[in-house]
Design a binder for these strands. Sequence first.
DNA 1: TCTGGGGTCCTAGGACCC
DNA 2: TCTGGGGTCCTAGGACCC
Length: 373
Amino acid sequence: MTGEAGLPRPASPVLHVDLDQFLAAVEMLRDPSLVGRPVVVGGRGDPSLRGVVSTASYEARAYGVGSGTPLRVAARKCPDAVFLPVDFAAYEAVSARVFDAIRSLEWGGVPVLVQVLGWDEAFVGLGPDAVAPEPVEEIAARIRARVLEAEQLTCCVGIGDNKLQAKLATGFAKPRPGEPGEGRVEGPGVHRLSDQTWFPVMGARPARALWGIGAKIAQRLAAIDVHTVEDLARADPHRLADAFGPTTGPWLRRLGRGVDPSPVDPTPWVARGHGREETFQDDLTDWADVAAEVARIARRVVADIHAEGRPALRVEIKVRYANFFTLTRSHKLPAPSDDPDLLAAEAVALLERVEQGRPVRLLGVRLEMTAPG
DNA sequence: TCTGGGGTCCTAGGACCC
DNA sequence: TCTGGGGTCCTAGGACCC
């Protein structure tokens, strides 16, 4: 069986697992007194500093605080919230254990395939030739039970005929924030979308609801009179290709029709590159400081790529001025290098290609690595 | 009330080459 | 006379997602 692009298609349903309020939930496990309270995890955990919310607990979401809300705004909307800093190492450790627990599950006598998407999400599926004997809803229930048993965390599961459908189905399974002062309102925990229910459920929803369509693409679609998922499915493919290009156009059309030929790919993640960026609490005005900070950040990134054992092939810097205007400059190296002095000097040299003298709010350095192996 | 940090992929224009 | 046309590499920026 082949999909639209001639790629193998999942023969069995796909599941998407999404941990509930993950960062806040980990913090509640460490400090049970937080349970039931509005908890905001983000930045340095100090709402008087620059930063945004990474995860808000459902109690905090009831006050209109969500991912991406500036911490200062969150503190105004929900003054009683507990603010906590992002603890990368803690979430990574719990996340790894959760997905290991899911990987230990079998489905029809065969280990499941797990494709991790981030700290708190994964697709779960079977190989292309495997056939699941039991109803997929039973697997969903076993995943939720295993995650709860192993790590005392709750999660939701979406089921679909492909990854796109499974990912969107999870949204219907999720709890919702209640009224301010209340806790969460439980959702069903599991929801299933399929080729049969795609248009009845999704057709009238805005195209923006699709995974991969953001505000900008939605706006450009509206300009060619495509507003809903069904509009997108019915749109003239040539018109989409003209407006969005030969790759993005057909991909948008597939999104509208609920088609996704990509398999669940359990191959461990290999980063193309690593970068670090830093927003300064006070804008930098002295460009000697700017150069020194770029060199410092570059050396940290070099340490990151040393951990992978792959040299850098391209150096990129990012400069965000106080007015939020942001630009990047990059340079391909004549030969791969992992030399901290050389790479820091390359990063600093790129500063010569931006306008200097204006106050700087953020600096970033990114190193692209050679392919592994 | 200002707007994080870590990534990926796609597009588009110019350079350069045949 | 007017100024090919395709392919690839490099760079900058845009858009999206978690």
